[in-house]
């Protein structure tokens, strides 16, 4: 069977299921909203706008990181409940194609979440990075592709563990993403036009250096994921 039509079929099926059930995106959004809300309460308003603009992007990315794990832990829920996963494994569908479709679907959900979260961020922290929006969305997309590339494999593994393995998923995935997040946070100084956490993480990288790093990590995670995912479903 040809891979591309199967890929779009699986992607369409996942999106259709999300539109009907409306579970993943609203749950992720609610979780991220809670993180940003609690963070905005924690920031000392009396100390002025400077502090909130300096640590705000850190909270923004932390909210995305943890909300992403909520989405990932739900990404195989439907397959697990209906016994669909067994059907897919025994069908002639290439499991690598199934992996890529799953990564594409979850990436789409998380990018939707990130764009929605930008408005929430503007509301709580009184700043929208309008002038750097293109660069920020590009960085968010690149981060999300790598994040979901690794996350889908780990979610497929942990979904079969005792109690759904949600805690184990976070324990495994979050440390893997910290180097990526660290570079993104350094670069966020440009996007949010501030010095992140008082410059504690270092200044932004050269744009070309930054995008090379992101694309290289994405390529590594996607290749490793593509090769290992069929093994996990075995």
């Amino acid at each position: 069977m040809k891979a591309l039509p199967i890929f779009f079929k699986l992607l369409g099926w996942d999106i259709l299921r999300e539109i009907r059930r409306r579970e993943t995106i609203p749950n992720m959004l609610l979780f991220a909203l809670l993180v940003l809300f609690v963070a905005s309460v924690g920031v000392d308003r009396d100390s002025g706008v400077k502090i909130s603009s300096s640590v705000g992007p850190v909270f923004f990315w932390v909210a995305i990181l943890f909300a992403g794990t909520v989405g990932l832990s739900q990404s195989f829920a439907a397959e697990r409940e209906g016994g669909v996963l067994g059907g897919i494994v025994t069908s002639p569908i290439d499991l690598g194609t199934f992996y890529l479709a799953k990564v594409a679907a979850t990436t789409l959900y998380v990018v939707v979440l990130e764009i929605a979260l930008l408005f929430v961020y503007g509301f709580f922290f009184s700043f929208v990075p309008a002038s750097q929006l293109g660069g920020l969305i590009g960085a968010m997309s690149l981060f999300t592709v790598g994040y979901m590339g690794a996350g889908v494999v780990l979610a497929a593994m942990t979904t079969t563990l005792r109690g759904g393995g949600e805690v184990v998923l976070r324990i495994l995935l979050v440390p893997l993403m910290i180097p990526f997040l660290w570079v993104i946070l350094r670069q966020s100084g440009l996007f949010f036009q501030t010095e992140i956490a008082g410059g504690a993480l270092g200044g932004p990288l050269r744009q070309s250096h930054f995008f090379t790093f992101c694309v290289a990590l994405d390529a590594i995670y996607l290749t490793v994921g593509y090769l290992l995912f069929p093994k996990v479903l075995e």
Binding site: V153, L154, M157, T160, I220, V224, L228, K231
Partner: peptide, 17 residues
Amino acid sequence: VKKALFSGVFGVIAAIN
């Protein structure tokens, strides 16, 4: 078998560090 398989997968991914 499951323990070995999942550990093998994560062992490869973690080596990226």
